[in-house]
Design a protein around this nucleic acid. Sequence first.
RNA 1: GCGACCGUAGCUCAGCUGGUAGAGCCCUCGGUUGUGAUCCGAGUUGUCGCGGGUUCGAGUCCCGUCGGUCGCCCCA
Length: 454
Amino acid sequence: MSEKKKIYKPKPVSGFPEWLPEYRAVEQRWLDKIRAVFESYGYCSIETPAVEELEVIAAKGEDVDKEIYVLERLQADPDEKKDARLALHFDQTVPLARYVAQHFADLTFPFKRYQMQKVWRGERPQMGRMREFTQCDIDVINVDSLPLHFDAEVAAICYEALAAMDMGRVQLRVSNRKILLGLLENIGVKNPAEILRLIDKMDKIGLLEFKVQLEGTTEKEVKNAIIQFVELSNAVKENPSNASGLLRDFIARNDVIARSGSDAAIQMMNEGIEELDFVLKQLEHLGDGVVADLSIVRGLDYYTGTVYETQLLDVPEFVGSVCSGGRYDDLAGSYINKHLPGVGISIGFTRLFDVLRQAGKIEPGPKSPADVLVVLPSEERRDEAAQAARTLRERGMKVELYHAPQKVGKQISYAEKKGIPYVWFPPFEDGLAHEVKNMSTGEQTEASPNDWTI
RNA sequence: GCGACCGUAGCUCAGCUGGUAGAGCCCUCGGUUGUGAUCCGAGUUGUCGCGGGUUCGAGUCCCGUCGGUCGCCCCA
């Protein structure tokens, strides 16, 4: 009686992506390139644990709570309530804050670090949105004050990292929150969050729909000022090189601002304009890869100045940002009694990779890293084959030795399927020479493991 | 978390208004002796997501449930 084996049918867990070897190879190559660019600017690497105490993560507050995965044992002890609850981190900025506070005495400031790790968010997955994904973060943190220079530097680094991969045109869009926040405060907006969210959606919904949704949110005078700002924002988009001129002009002409404004608010706007101006000037060498875009707001409320988003111009079907960040006045205020301003930007690596993969923009790599497959002619000749493989490996090649003395055709077809470019034939009989076959041309020549090169 | 759609072999899917499962790909073997990608032949593979209901009979209809895709919220 043959009882049927119970099979648990494998299925993917939605939002937890995994790739086949040929795509994983590309992913690894890309990560190496990003790392190389980060390090070329002198940023160091750190890694923090996958989990933090829930208290630490929830310090960011509000509606990110619902995205946090908590960690617990299936069979928890009844008295385990006493222990701190653990949670998977949902970004790398909060762990960085904790890290900096914790190792404050041992770090050298400005602290420049990059971090490439998985993060987890309990969201409904869809195109470009996962529950587990890799982010490549780069941040600078300093004590008391942080030069504006870094706002430009981190953006330039990320742009360079993206350019190092073959992904078509990307555009980094920069704004400064002080401009919009100053304006809204200035004109006395009572529900800034709602307005900000709406402005952030401008690109997606268009000016017409924007005006419709703006109806009923606030009084007329304020509304007009906002619409004027959005029109200004569109004008800047059309003529990004004149961003600061357009902005200054806007303030000078706007009678709502002139009449009702508080000095502090106007000062904030001006500050924002100065800062944006400086950052854009520092990034001029990147051409139209970097533009001003006043409609960029960013949801996370700790950003206080410069903010960034990045679009893949050659994948129009995906409008989300693949690389975002900004400046925060005080990163670690909730963990240490120091003032630690910072600026950082994060490449949404998995999003970037998956969107490009689905758009057919990524050429898969070989299924094996090997350069050479050494054929095993027979058990009697295994030593000779293994020796040839060792010699080639010692000379720097990646070499796989076939595992069983099967028919030669089978061994070659294995190399073909795995994308191994060369097949090595040890002598099949005493006195014969080694041979090597180039799989793409089919050409086969005599060769010696001691001096053959690819 | 809310809404719409979907769930048949490892993969992509077919299965008409209910009558007890099929194709292509993949995989394995073969088309003699030491050479792949083509071609030809043969073969293996399914609790039709799960549970219940209607029916003489359900992959096919109904309910529930779980999973997936997309949209919204939000974001990398």
